[in-house]
Design a protein around this nucleic acid. Structure first.
Ligand SMILES: Cc1cn([C@H]2C[C@H](O)[C@@H](COP(=O)(O)OP(=O)(O)OP(=O)(O)O)O2)c(=O)[nH]c1=O
Ligand SMILES: [Mg+2]
Length: 679
DNA sequence: GGGGTCCAGAAGA
DNA sequence: TTCCATCTTCTGGACCCC
């Protein structure tokens, strides 16, 4: 056990400085927890669970789960994780037995890192953040609109899945992401009847806008983290209004919450104010529901110290257990065992954990949306026809979604979940950007064929499938129209986007699209101009493009014809030539209901249906970026946010080279398959 | 040693 | 009787082609 002299702790009152009642918040792990409980996602103590008889609820959940395919799959995954942890432990043991000089060096290095972080924290003093989070959001809206539900246990969702539940239901152990039939049983066992309410995203979106409007008064640049939460930088507001004191902060938090409740006709919110985004977020959860917590600078370190690592946004169920295997349970433990972490985790994970444990914020999230996806669950089936039709439906829905956001995609990914709950993804780059259902469908079908080919053969039938999904990435904005919020789309000067947009305005041609994202290359010489000029012209063969062997060749577009066909009342096209003055109104997407605040990419979400719908005949952790930042989607990885590196790293340190790992079909674009030219 | 893509998996609302 | 969502982002490692 490496006991490191972490950065000296500023004398800390270990007491969380809340302004209302204090929750016990202790992890209460250990004791006789059966060793399957950790498989459930809802055993942690979140808001509203304090009084639940956890043992009993777990027992019920287990009884209802143990024989399901779902549970078996969870066990399989858990077994894999256990192996990873074993390997990690073995590796750490090796470190402990390594040369003393080596360990000394590691320890010194860590001391340096911690000191640097301490300095960074000092340098960031004086800025104040507030995190606001609506209480049981979807449910609160439903209950407000039907007061008869008020004292009953209510869940938004259905027998298949619960999105969220009110606090009455939570007392029985009902939680978000819990299947409805289990929630029902949990209540029934205690003589209560859980009421399901099917959600209504439009309503939640509208309420979200209302909340946003209220909050923008305190920080016009606020960032919405989702429909029901927001981050505000209160530094200026506090200074300007002479409220830069503890009392001032209490007052502001109170005012914010009151105004929200008033504007939403009764919805309540919880708020946290702290000298950092992450701490503010943790604080807002501290006195939920309808409560608030203020963390003063002098209390920050002490507050973090006592926190369970699980409270760090980005450390989830798996991360918690990995750390637990290192005997690290609290943020203080992270700092005290920084050397262990350094040894076991990737640089990125280490950095993330150390910073988080000290209450230092990481980088924010990417602001541009990177993908659109749609997926559907149904009764597992092998019926190819049915599956293909399903895929078609999904493609259509996605195309509509893209169009309404004036986006096009050049890369799609098919997602397949089999009856045993195993998930598989297949990438399919396209030869050009598209927002047409036919194109998306073609790509998805192609990928699906590949899936069938590789997962079933002459001897063996392909497995039954319970979910199909498509993700559209590598997005491109179509300029020249208006966005869903009614704003005209205009690219920033000096970017390719801007260049293309101007060009389009001049030519009056069909709206070209350019890469979305942070690509902003200065246009300086003719050569570049030429290159750019070609970018939009997908006329040329994609030969030089991505992976010639695994790319779907889409039929080329003939501008004029397409233009005429596309002009359709229901789907006003964004790219009318020279429509720079924005004559076209956006499709009446659910997004444009409220005023003009540029809303943060409201996602069109399908709420869980009553269990298996159709029949055969559906994690801020601010990671730092290392050298090369990743562009577009590129999907993700590794088990567990920051943490898993631990295991992974150990894993192959040992079993180096081997084809081990998960992917049976190796990575790199090499997948073969002839391109099909559609027409 | 770069770049790049592909994929599994974690996380959070 | 059965019965476990949907959408989004991010990380890391495997593989590829230089
Ligand atoms: C956690 C979670 C939330 N949601 C939706 C429903 C929630 O109302 C909404 C906000 O999520 P949360 O803020 O996590 O939960 P909540 O607002 O319902 O309850 P509270 O904050 O009081 O603990 O996001 C899901 O659809 N699936 C999920 O797994
Ligand atoms: Mg909430």
């Amino acid at each position: 056990m490496a006991k490191e002299g972490a950065a000296e702790q500023p004398t800390s009152s270990r007491q969380p400085p809340s302004s209302t009642a204090a929750a016990d918040g202790g992890p209460l792990y250990g004791q006789a927890e059966k060793d399957y409980h950790h498989l459930f996602n809802f055993t942690n103590n979140k808001a509203g669970m304090d009084k639940v008889d956890r043992e009993k609820a777990n027992q019920t959940i287990y009884e209802m789960s143990k024989n399901s395919s779902y549970f078996k799959n969870e066990q399989r995954k858990d077994d894999n994780r256990k192996e990873d942890i074993d390997r990690m432990k073995a590796h750490l043991e090796a470190y402990r037995n390594s040369q003393p000089e080596m360990r000394l060096k590691a320890e010194q290095s860590v001391r340096g890192v911690l000191q640097r972080l301490e300095k960074e924290r000092e340098s960031k003093r004086g800025s104040w953040w507030c995190h606001v989070d609506m209480d049981m959001f979807y449910c609160a809206v439903e209950i407000r609109d039907d007061p008869s539900l008020k004292d009953k246990p209510v869940a938004v969702g259905g027998p298949g899945m619960i999105c969220t539940a009110n606090y009455v239901a939570r007392r029985y152990g009902v939680r978000a992401a819990m299947p409805g039939f289990i929630g029902k049983k949990l209540c029934a066992d205690q003589g209560a009847e859980l009421v399901f309410v099917g959600g209504n995203m439009q309503k939640y979106q509208a309420e979200s806008m209302t909340v946003r409007r209220v909050l923008s008064e305190f920080d016009p640049h606020l960032k919405m983290g989702s429909l029901d939460e927001a981050f505000l930088n209160l530094t200026d507001y506090l200074k300007e209004n002479d409220l830069d004191s503890h009392e001032g902060r209490v007052k502001v938090a109170t005012e914010i919450r009151e105004k929200i409740t008033e504007a939403t006709r009764g919805l309540t919110a919880s708020a946290g104010i702290a000298p950092g985004r992450m701490m503010a977020k943790i604080a807002s959860d501290f006195n939920k529901p309808n409560g608030q917590t203020i963390i003063e600078e002098r209390d920050a370190a002490g507050f973090m110290d006592s926190l369970s690592v699980r409270k760090i946004p980005g450390v989830g169920k798996v991360g918690e257990h990995k750390l637990e295997a290192l005997n690290i349970k609290t943020c203080r433990d992270i700092l005290d065992n920084a050397v262990l972490i350094t040894q076991a985790c990737s640089d990125k994970s280490t950095q993330f954990l150390l910073r988080a444990a000290m209450g230092i914020d990481g980088e924010g999230r990417a602001s541009e949306r990177k993908s659109f996806s749609c997926e559907r669950t149904f009764r597992a089936t092998q019926d190819r026809k049915f599956l293909e039709e399903k895929l078609r439906d999904i493609a259509e829905s996605l195309a509509e979604d893209l169009k309404s956001h004036f986006m096009r995609s050049r890369h799609i990914t098919l997602k397949v979940k089999t009856a045993d709950f195993k998930v598989k993804q297949l990438a399919m780059p396209l030869s050009r950007s598209t927002d047409e259902a036919d194109d998306i469908d073609a790509g998805a079908q192609r990928a699906f064929s590949k899936y069938i080919d590789t997962h079933g053969d002459d001897t063996k039938a392909p497995p039954a499938i319970r979910l199909l999904g498509i993700k559209c990435a590598n997005l491109t904005h179509v300029f020249g129209g208006t966005g869903p919020d009614g704003e005209e789309r205009e690219a920033p000067k000096g970017t390719i986007d801007y260049f293309l947009q101007q060009q389009q305005k001049q030519k009056g041609g069909k709206g070209k699209a350019s890469e979305v994202g942070d690509i902003s290359i200065e246009i300086e010489d003719d050569e570049q101009m030429d290159q750019i000029d070609q970018m939009g012209d997908n006329a040329d063969a994609p030969a030089g493009d991505d992976h010639p062997g695994n790319q779907l060749l889409l039929p080329d577009i003939i501008d004029l014809e397409e233009w005429e066909e596309d002009v359709d009342v229901n789907h006003p096209q964004p790219q009318p030539p020279s429509c720079s003055s924005s004559p076209c109104q956006p499709a009446p997407s659910s997004a444009s209901l409220q005023p003009s605040l540029p809303l943060p990419l409201p996602q069109k979400r399908q709420l869980p249906q009553s269990s298996a719908a159709a029949q055969p005949k559906q994690p801020a952790p601010k990671r730092g970026k290392k050298g090369g930042k990743r562009n577009q989607d590129a999907a993700t990885v590794c088990v567990s946010g920051p943490m898993d590196a631990l295991l992974k790293r150990m894993a192959d340190r040992k079993a180096a080279g081997g084809g081990g790992g998960g992917s049976s079909a190796a990575g790199g674009g090499g997948v073969d398959g002839e391109c099909i030219e559609l027409d």
